[in-house]
Design a protein around this nucleic acid. Structure first.
Lengths: 199, 199
DNA sequence: GTCTATATCCAGATAGAC
DNA sequence: GTCTATCTGGATATAGAC
């Protein structure tokens, strides 16, 4: 048996990192940064507490990497959905449907949403995550643009676009939270209900 | 100057307790039980860390009293609103309006909502608060009843009452969260938008 | 690469002076 | 009733053996 190459070792190390990140996500999303113990992450991941520090420099490092991913993922998803060639109201309905769908079916999605919320509400704003709390958050901006377009076309209700956006994201975040709390008992919400907000 | 009577002392002690609870609420709601430090509560309240223990036995005691109040307050409010002599859809609209209103105008309301969420998601379910996570939570039940009634009368959309209830509370919780994050920048949401969910 | 100490720090809670 | 030590436990992070 030949010794492993450097690349193979790197690959294994990457997989371990991903495994740790995935386990950490679920705990951080529920408990937040401070209340999450390295020993919890280690135990769930199936190895000793000290070993975490072979893969990450600190607890905060893990947390920040996850928050960055949460923001990147959701921003990328919304910016992509925005490009779809659909009329505004249909686009919003499709976005709602897509998000509800991944919250239900993609195991980490609800946790990512919750993590963003946690990060925003905890206001450890020493770092980059303040970018999200304010309205420059890309998913927020995307919805504002679609709503405004729909209002110009007279398709979407003439309420304040900010209000509609806030309510939309409040609903999505609330659903993600519900999914995390309820787990598999969470029902498959009909996204048309959400779309009614805009009519 | 006469010495204070026992009753006067009790009154002062009660006021101090309320002051501590109010300050603690705002921190607990954002950070959760573990990440909140007694020294934070003490500093905001304007006295030494040790003095907290003159008024409460432990940090958990403060937290649990606040969670109990949050559950009691919201349950009482919803059960009262349910009694109003209004047709189902109007009742729901009025409930939405009332809740949005107190979230905006009553300083501690948004924090109480957020605290319930925090308690539910953190799953320290060693205690009484598990009662809320599941569907026996009174405000949840109230909405279910009103929706069911409205559906029998053909006034409310025939979607799953559970789904409608989940979306309604998801929206309310999301709004409370938004209020806490945004503070005074939070806009006065038109509750009619929320009521559209049910049409 | 993984584990078992262990150093260090910090927060909850207590004791005792004023 | 309030404050200033101080005890104690537990969590992060490090060191060093295997």
């Amino acid at each position: 048996m030949l010794p492993r190459t450097t690349e193979q070792n790197e690959k294994i190390k990457d997989e371990r990192r991903e495994q740790i990140l995935f386990n950490a996500l679920k705990i951080f999303a529920r408990r937040g940064l401070v209340a999450t113990k390295i020993s919890d992450i280690a135990r769930v991941s199936g190895f000793s507490q000290g070993l975490i520090y072979h893969y990450f420099n600190s607890k905060v490092d893990i947390y920040e990497e996850l928050v960055a991913r949460a923001i990147d993922n959701s921003s990328e998803m919304l910016l992509n959905l925005e490009q779809l060639p659909l009329p505004p109201l249909e686009k919003i309905t499709f976005i709602a449907e897509t998000i509800v769908d991944i919250i239900i079916n993609q195991e980490d999605a609800a946790y990512y949403f919750l993590l963003i919320t946690q990060a925003a509400v905890t206001e450890n704003s020493s770092d980059s995550m303040a970018a999200m709390a304010d309205d420059s958050f890309a998913p927020f901006q995307v919805m504002l643009r679609i709503i405004t377009e729909g209002q110009q076309q007279g398709i979407i209700s003439q309420d304040s676009p900010q209000d509609l956006t806030i309510i939309f994201w409040a609903t999505i975040n609330g659903l993600a939270l519900n999914k995390v709390i309820e787990g598999n008992q969470f029902p498959h919400i009909d996204s048309k209900i959400i779309a009614r907000i805009f009519k």
